[in-house]
Design a protein around this nucleic acid. Structure first.
Lengths: 231, 231
DNA sequence: TAGATTGTTAATCGATTAACAATC
DNA sequence: TAGATTGTTAATCGATTAACAATC
């Protein structure tokens, strides 16, 4: 491995130039949580933190934190811990926060309009460049500063403006066909709220499914389980 | 297709009267998916299915299906497979679909209004009995047939009507305090969209967190990872 | 009965936790 | 140097898959 012997205690360059194969899904799903906690630590003006201190804060083991972070390179330093800003910047890099990702929303119904107005995208460096719908009553309107275009304009729009991801909030029964169409337009990421399970053979297309119905049912289960308990 | 010429072959009573301790979270999180696939099979008029056939349909191993279902009792029959209706009914029971659960939504902003109009709750047997907000411009209005009440009326409302769960779509910074208030009102389930991590020591309160920001970041990661791949 | 398929135990795999040598 | 804390290997735990006896 690389061992640049820096006399200054904290190395300020990433050890390897972002190449991370074979990182387990379990680790990846935990990264956003590190991102949030580090952002909060920065807000508090904290400069360094040890895996032990962070573990107490987050309610996980220090071992897990060190293992997780080591998947992506040595962000810490023996005897010192982790430089909060340096670690945060590296995690931002991993999560593409400063990659200038551009998104469109397919479907300007209740959920689409709720999402476009949420500060979530801006906070995470994702720029919403347009919404699309088939409803003439919606086309031409602006929600949260974003214009709703006719779905027929999709291909032309994507050929003119580089779009990285699409947020799918359209009806379930049209999800599969429109997803194919989006991929044909060169879009490589789908944030899928439709409830339809989408799959792409060539894993060039990243899909993140948000199945709210499933989430609700899990709550139902936990609730009934607690109730069933013969005190 | 396959008509059921099995007189007494299929047992139609649940083997144990719903007592399921120590079922792993991994299994529980898969239950809603079984629910969806079984519902679809019923729609298609299918009467029986083997773990092998279902495994091909769902893209999981037959072994996993048999292990999962066996956590809750013997729903199948050797040499036959599973009776679709019987299995579906048992999973509905586990997921509280016919338990007549009653819910309120806290926060009548964009997301709250989008959720209340979604058919999701009705499909899963959850009845939304009221929304609550602090904004005078919203209080008194009706969305999706549900009245928005003043948050000050929460305690009185809950003392008059039995409420099982609350959907939290209020601002993050008020989440913790309002959650405490809801639990004090006797509510035992929280569907939490606030982004604030909620915890309750006495596990009498079921919490299901939906962290949309985290989900978006995971998509970001996958997208950047694909892109980074040197062609 | 013979064939099919479950329920269940045993084997494998992966993820988490513990331990400690390396080293700042 | 001495103390602290990482990076990393080894041990443990849990979840998935394979195998097969039970039995419909």
């Amino acid at each position: 491995m690389d061992h640049d012997n820096t006399r200054n205690l904290i190395r300020q360059t990433a050890p390897t130039p972002t190449e991370h194969p074979n990182v387990s899904p379990a680790v990846i799903r935990r990264l956003p949580r590190y991102f949030r906690y580090l952002r909060e630590l920065i807000r508090q003006g904290k400069l360094r933190i040890s895996s032990g201190e962070l573990s107490r804060l987050m309610g996980v083991t220090a071992s897990q934190i060190r293992q997780d972070l080591n998947c992506f390179g040595g962000f810490g330093q023996q005897g010192y811990g982790y430089n909060v800003n340096f670690l945060y910047e590296n995690i931002c890099e991993l999560l593409g926060v400063d990659a200038g990702l551009q998104a469109i929303i397919i479907g300007a119904g209740d959920l689409g309009r709720a999402l476009v107005r949420a500060p979530m995208f801006e906070k995470r460096g994702v720029n919403i460049v347009s919404m699309f719908d088939v409803d003439p009553a919606l086309i031409g309107r602006t929600v949260g500063g974003v214009l709703i275009r006719n779905m027929t304009e999709l291909e032309r729009f994507c050929s003119e403006i580089s779009v990285d991801m699409a947020v799918l909030t359209l009806p379930k029964d049209r999800a599969a066909e429109e997803a194919e169409r989006l991929v044909a337009c060169g879009i490589r990421g789908l944030w899928n709220f439709t409830g339809k399970e989408l799959e792409f053979e060539d894993s060039k297309v990243a899909v993140e499914n948000v199945h709210l119905g499933d989430s609700l049912m899990i709550l139902n289960y936990k609730l009934c389980e607690n109730t069933d308990d013969k005190d």
